[in-house]
């Protein structure tokens, strides 16, 4: 299992930035980098202490890596992305569940019931008899896993979020109907917002809303930054104080959205598919 402490190795490139949109790249020792980043970053506060195994009662799966935003999973199946939006089925494990690379295959990870302090919800992207394939919130981008059917509570999200990084546009749809389209800020050319199918992973309300009252991390991670501000390089939707950034490719991968877009996105259930194209 990978976590932030192992990712932020000495000499590893660590990015920090300020709320005004300026950014700087620094090379520094891991401990100093994490400490400094935590103090000065405008894009996040203290990083999460991700939970230890919650696979209580099942020692076999307790030894497997947890599929959280901090993990870099090996031997998982890549998302084919055949149907970008899926059918809206989202799933919540009520306890840690084993994740296999193939239907019926041996477990390669576990999906915990909590993610960043809230309930884990993931989109179901494929179903086979007795098995459900879900998108995972871990690296590498597009990581998927098969979970035995009946192990998760399923629900339906009528929402779909679409981001066109070239057009710098975000669209929110509910039951196929547009709820709005907004001009947003996306990743800069050297730190692009990763394209592909992901999902809204969590809804966080920082104690100090330095740049946004709400952070909506998604399952995807920056492809160019292994770590950011002490975090694992997780991409997110969030607001931004300066409206001038909207329409620009200036972020480290996150998608900065106007306040009314954030207000609408706040209502979108966790696990809802997010389709990012460029």
């Amino acid at each position: 299992m990978s976590n932030r402490s192992t990712r932020a190795r000495i000499g590893r490139r660590v990015m920090v930035h300020t709320p005004v949109g300026g950014s700087r790249s620094v090379m520094m020792g891991a401990v100093a980098a994490v400490t400094l980043a935590t103090l000065v970053t405008g894009c996040g506060g203290k990083s999460q202490d991700h939970p230890s195994s919650s696979a209580a009662g099942n020692p076999a799966i307790g030894k497997l890596p947890q599929a959280t935003t901090f993990a870099n999973l090996k031997n998982v199946a890549k998302d084919s992305g055949a149907d970008a939006a899926g059918n809206g089925t989202v799933a919540h494990p009520t306890a840690a569940v084993p994740v296999s690379a193939t239907p019926g295959g041996p477990p390669v990870a576990t999906l915990p019931d909590k993610e960043l302090g809230g309930p884990t919800w993931v989109p179901v992207v494929e179903t086979k008899p007795g098995w459900q394939r879900v998108l995972l919130p871990s690296r590498p981008n597009g990581a998927t896993g098969w979970i035995p059917a009946g192990k998760m509570h399923t629900a339906h999200s009528p929402y779909v979020v679409k981001v066109d990084t070239s057009a710098r546009r975000l669209s929110l749809l509910k039951s196929g109907q547009s709820l709005g389209t907004w001009t947003v800020a996306v990743g800069a050319p050297k730190t692009p917002t990763p394209a592909g199918r992901t999902f809204i992973m969590a809804s966080l309300a920082p104690a100090k809303a330095t740049y946004s009252p709400l952070i909506l991390p998604v399952g995807a991670h920056s492809e160019s930054l292994d770590t950011f501000g002490g975090g694992p390089g997780t991409v997110a939707f969030h607001g931004w104080p300066q409206k001038s950034v909207f329409g620009q490719a200036v972020t480290h991968g996150c998608i900065r959205v106007p306040a009314d877009a954030l207000q609408q996105l706040a209502k979108v259930p966790l696990g809802t598919p997010v389709s990012i194209s460029n």
Binding site: M15, H17, S23, A37, T41, G42, C43, G44, G45, K46, S47, Q48, T69, V90, L116, G117, G118, W121, A155, H156, S157, P158, G187, T191, I200, A202, S203, L204, A205, P206, A207, K208, Y211, L214, I215, P217, H221, S222, L225, F228, G229, G230, G231, G233, T234, V235, A236, H238, T251, H252, G253, C254, R256, A266, K267, V268, P269, L270, G271, T272
Partner: peptide, 17 residues
């Protein structure tokens, strides 16, 4: 049933701004 509207968790994560 329809998936629930999320309740924001009082927490933070350094994301890629």
């Amino acid at each position: 049933g329809e998936a629930p509207r999320p309740s924001p968790v009082p927490s933070d994560l350094p994301v890629t701004g």
